[in-house]
Design a protein around this nucleic acid. Structure first.
Lengths: 207, 207
DNA sequence: TGACTCATACAAACTAGTTGGTATGTTTTG
DNA sequence: CAAAACATACCAACTAGTTTGTATGAGTCA
């Protein structure tokens, strides 16, 4: 048995609990429809704790977007799709990895940054910037492999760039989340990721 | 001079004004962050008028999604991309048409249904269903041309269907809106539409 | 044609509840 | 003990929705 009662969490964890709760609630209800009380209730802390760690709801939103970026960054950094020696195989393995993640409840697979930026891009510059950094920061992690694949497969087509294709993968994923939400079914998202994979294969002439 | 004073709008126009205002405000601030007062103020009517025409904010959301569907439906039905004799040319012309629409302020080019469903897919079944009908109803208008192109170009690949590719076009567009909002720049959206066009061309072996 | 009826289309003021945020504690920890 | 980490109680502003009242136009019938 622990000397600390499990009902009351250890001190100093309220901020983490609030961030975790924020990510969960934002994915379900969105940023605007989520109240500070919602987040506090889910985190199991009081409003006093909330405003001790965040000076406003907007600051929580910003922190949540950044937290999401570092969290997912860790997941992708340690994921196995980096293993193949061939750079194109790494890119395709990334796409396969993203498709494999498209399982379970919709709220558990969507991108918090994409969800938040949709609601705040005009009303909160801070949140928008944090979401941009998260999304396009992830895009950057793909550029090197695509660039290497272009060289390995002697692709000289200047009509598209590694940067642009990397961004396009995120376009497809973000769109897939919306299409899945609209139909209330994740299958449609997987289908679009298949189209994305086929496109990349064809770009590198592996049809 | 009109016998009717211009300051006071004609009777029976409040509902239309409210729907127009709703589309505009939803695109800027999203559904949740928009208050009924916001919509009334933009429409230039009072709350009495609002709740005369809509029994709740949710009903406005549903009506707005349907209104968006019929409005855009009219635009696409009368658009010139249906003219080419070759069905693949019609599909490509549709994509070009969508790209041409990607100009101006972000709030003026985005899809209201995509924006709304993101916020309401878990909290309002009525709005979600209305958005689904609008988005996937538009998808349906593309299926016939893609199907005809498959036949015309003797495409027998069973790994993808006309229905699936039609949905994928909307995936790319919806995703493009999010990527544009994140970066606060529409150029990234146009780039993804270019990728989509290239993909369709390659699918029909016109590389 | 013109007075009467009546439903529709609004307007203005109000209410009960929720919102983000604050002021002021109390407890824990270094 | 001092500061950090919370909890409690509270507030002003805002929220969706209601209540009540009024202007208007479409029928109707003498």
């Amino acid at each position: 048995m622990s000397s600390r009662p499990t009902s009351k969490p250890a001190r100093g964890t309220a901020r983490d609990a609030l961030l975790d709760a924020a990510l969960a609630v934002f994915r379900e209800k969105g940023y605007s429809a989520t109240s500070v009380d919602d987040v506090c209730a889910r985190a199991g802390v009081t409003k006093g704790a909330f405003f001790h760690h965040f000076k406003s709801k907007e600051e929580l939103g910003q922190a949540a977007a950044e937290f999401w970026g570092t969290m997912t960054g860790e997941v992708f950094r340690t994921a196995p799709y980096h293993d193949p020696a061939d750079p194109l195989e790494r890119v395709l393995a990334y796409i396969d990895f993203r498709k494999a993640l498209l399982q379970g409840e919709i709220a558990e697979i969507t991108c918090v940054a994409g969800t938040m930026v949709q609601e705040t891009y005009q009303t909160s510059p801070a949140i928008r910037a944090a979401c941009e950094k998260t999304i396009y920061g992830h895009v950057e992690t793909l550029v090197a492999d695509i660039e290497a694949a272009r060289e390995a497969y002697a692709i000289t087509d200047t009509r598209w760039s590694a940067q642009g294709l990397a961004a396009h993968t995120q376009t497809v994923l973000q769109g897939a989340f919306i299409m899945a939400k609209a139909r209330n079914d994740v299958a449609i998202a997987q289908d679009s990721v298949d189209h994305l994979r086929r496109y990349v294969e064809m770009l590198f002439k592996r049809a």
